[in-house]
């Protein structure tokens, strides 16, 4: 949040004094079920979580991957019941459940914190907009390259690795569900990217050996992950 928003020490302290309930979620378990009415929002402390929609036949589309430091359902403050779900990906996830009433008290007392939350929601929306372009218009190779670049930048900003070297602890079906293709097809695409010398994968470790080429292959421009003025504050 501090990468997007400037907050005073008092505001930061107010956020830190929020009392959340820490919960450990096993891999593949729901954090928020579809249709569940929640009275808290979740901060991802560690691990990876995903928001997804599911069809009757069981097929899924992952619509967001949340990494440590993401407040993964801030929107639930305004929309406590949604039809999508949030689930732990393939490793255990630690979350902090922060009650909505405390969040509301906080944002009413500190408008800058409300702005910061708002900015986080905008960031979520910007990423989602890119993902729509991904599944709608980018071909399989392009969208895979785009997502791997995006996750690299996000991991680096969150202090979880380097943009060209990070660990993506998810199984192939989950990554394929984020890309809107079958795992077999995705593996074929990743093999192609490897053979072209763009990346090396070793188990869950992604090593992007030619960032410029992978970004070009994905048409990736990271502007949607940045904020024009950087952290700013109008006083």
């Amino acid at each position: 949040m501090l990468q997007r928003s400037v907050l005073t020490e008092e505001e930061q302290a107010a956020i830190c004094s929020l009392e959340g309930r820490e919960a450990g979620i096993e891999p593949h378990r729901d954090i928020v079920r579809p249709g569940e009415h929640t009275d808290y929002s979740c901060l991802v402390v560690s691990g990876l979580a995903a928001r997804f929609g599911q069809l009757r036949d069981g097929h899924r589309q992952i619509t967001a991957i949340h990494i440590a430091g993401d407040m993964c359902d801030l929107y639930s403050l305004m929309l406590p019941k949604v039809e999508w779900a949030i689930q732990a990906l393939s490793s255990p996830v630690k979350i902090l459940k922060v009650p909505h009433r405390d969040l509301l008290k906080l944002v009413r007392a500190y408008p800058a914190v409300a702005e910061a939350f708002w900015r986080d929601c905008v960031a979520d929306g910007s990423i989602l907009a890119q993902w729509v372009v991904n599944v709608g218009r980018r071909d399989a190779r392009m969208r895979t390259a785009h997502l791997l670049c995006e996750l690299g930048v996000r991991m680096e900003r969150a202090g979880l690795g380097r943009r060209d070297a990070y660990t993506l602890d998810i199984v192939q079906t989950q990554l394929a569900d984020a890309l809107g293709m079958t795992p077999v097809h995705m593996n074929r695409i990743i093999r192609g990217l490897r053979e072209d010398g763009l990346l090396v994968t070793r188990r869950r470790d992604i090593h992007i050996t030619d960032w410029a080429a992978l970004a070009a292959a994905g048409g990736f421009e990271g502007g949607y992950l940045e904020y024009e003025d950087g952290p700013h504050r109008r006083l």
């Binding site: 192939q172 077999v184 074929r188």
Partner: peptide, 30 residues
């Protein structure tokens, strides 16, 4: 295919019919 991709990780299915259905879906996807 034009290149052979072995599925080292595997996928879980309730039965062989579901696995074959996914193989059909994968072939069509490619």
């Amino acid at each position: 295919n034009d290149t052979d991709i072995l599925d080292e990780e595997g996928q879980d299915f309730p039965n062989i019919a579901a696995a074959v259905a996914e193989a059909v879906r994968s072939a069509r996807d490619i």
